[in-house]
Design a protein around this nucleic acid. Structure first.
Length: 380
RNA sequence: GGACAGGUGGGUGAGUGGUUAAAGCCAACAGACUGUAAAUCUGUCACUCCUUGCGAGUUACGAAGGUUCGAAUCCUUCCCUGUCCA
């Protein structure tokens, strides 16, 4: 029986290795390269699932195992028909394992060989997350793409500490994958292991090579955007991506700024996610084709122009910068909605441009143009 | 007319003799944010000067005087605000 989940590679840029494809899931196809909006708590903060579908036409979003396990609990979600039904999102969902919370909640957890012992950030209760339990939780949620539990390290760390951690992440990945194969590998969903190794090429290489033995549905590159210089994130991605199988999707976790997206795609990455478009929107930082707009700045007080004159999102079609600034200053909820809608439009628009360029064999020219534009913005 | 209570930096509001150019909050201004403990967080917020320093000077707690080494803080008078009584 052919698996519902599969990655269809449609085009590869000869010059850069950038790829265009379709990730077929039980909840629809996902054209790649893709940016996945982050919806940690079963909602992309600020926007409705309806907006994500009608306005943004997003095909896949993220949700988070740790957060949904703590509240409302995966059994509650399962009883209500699963995560897709729960959040009225009929399209694909990728769930992160909680590995990022090892990094972001570092003061509330303890890593052991067995797994990660978290003290709940909500009430202090202890919860042990194991490679197997995080897969069980993600299955209960009904995730289309499950992630194995990994240890996301902060930067910088010593080579030795990174090696010890990476080896443990490898053992966890093997355990999680065995569990997944045994119980849930029904072709309706996928499971991705995560390459770690901090900023050490030899560790990245070893980790990737070991994970290849799992013959996984796809591969993620984790442990980036944890405080390292941007060039290092790209370098680690490049080193790692080269080792990954051509016929499997590649996912760089937690990146990046809009001008960085083409750089990842140029290194053969198919999937990305980041909280920047949604979080920064709520904090008044809007991404535009002409650079950033920090909407609270006094210069926008009477500015009648849309946030981005080259954007046709609902926000830019209807509202001025002056209005957006007013909403932000007044603390109005509508600002978060409009700003997030705009920022995600920008991100998804960039991804669509890139996909088209790759399919048209025009990606190298696209990349050069984007790099030139980014150069100009940096100097401005 | 009388009795109380008050008048503090853009707003609010602490401070009731010295470590106070004056807490906190708000507003304003600027910055950060990268598999979301975030509609969050940080910085600036009287003026002038320089050798930019836990630097120097000036002005400032209704007004004007006074006491004191030293006053937003104590005293006197005046002005204003609120409440109550005539």
């Amino acid at each position: 029986m052919e698996s519902v989940f599969r990655f269809e590679l449609q085009a590869v840029c000869k010059e850069t290795g950038a790829r265009a494809g379709i990730l077929h899931t039980a909840h629809g196809g996902v054209e790649t390269p893709v940016f996945m909006p982050v919806g940690t708590q079963a909602t992309v903060k600020g926007v409705l699932a309806r907006d994500l579908i009608r306005d943004l036409d997003a095909k896949i979003v993220l949700a988070n195992t740790y957060h949904l396990y703590l509240r409302p609990g995966q059994e509650t979600i399962r009883a209500l028909g699963g995560l897709h039904r729960f959040m009225a999102w009929p399209r694909a969902i990728l769930t992160d394992s909680g590995g990022f919370q090892v990094f972001s909640l570092d003061s509330l957890r303890k890593v052991t060989e067995q797994g990660v012992l978290f003290r709940s950030h909500l009430n202090g209760d202890s919860h042990l997350f194991t490679p197997q339990s995080t897969i069980d939780i993600q299955k209960a949620l009904g995730s289309d793409v499950m992630m194995v539990l990994d240890e996301c390290l902060a930067y910088p760390v010593s080579h030795e500490a990174a090696r010890v951690s990476m080896e443990r992440t490898l053992r966890w990945a093997a355990a999680a994958y065995a569990h997944y194969r045994e119980r849930y590998s029904d072709g309706l969903r996928a499971c991705f292991p995560i390459v770690q190794g901090s900023m050490f090429p030899d560790l990245r290489r070893r980790c990737a090579e070991e994970l290849l033995k799992l013959d996984a549905d796809g591969y993620a590159i984790g442990g980036l955007s944890v405080g390292e210089p941007r060039a290092l994130s790209l370098e680690m991605t490049e080193i790692t991506a080269r080792l990954l199988p051509l016929d499997r999707p590649r996912y760089t976790m937690g990146v990046g700024m809009p001008e960085e997206l083409p750089e990842y795609v140029a290194r053969g990455i198919d999937m990305m996610d980041c909280v920047l478009p949604s979080r920064n929107a709520r904090n008044g930082y809007l991404f535009t084709s002409a650079g950033r707009v920090i909407i609270k700045q006094a210069q926008y007080k009477d500015d009648p122009r849309p946030v981005d004159q080259a954007c046709d999102c609902y926000c830019c079609r209807n509202f001025s910068r002056a209005y957006m600034r007013h909403l932000f200053q007044a603390g109005e909820i509508a600002f978060a909605t409009l700003g997030t809608l705009h920022n995600l439009t920008r991100y998804l628009g960039i991804m669509r441009e890139m996909r088209r360029a790759i399919l048209d064999g025009a990606f190298p020219a696209y990349l050069r143009a984007r790099r030139a534009a980014a150069q100009v913005e940096t100097q401005a």
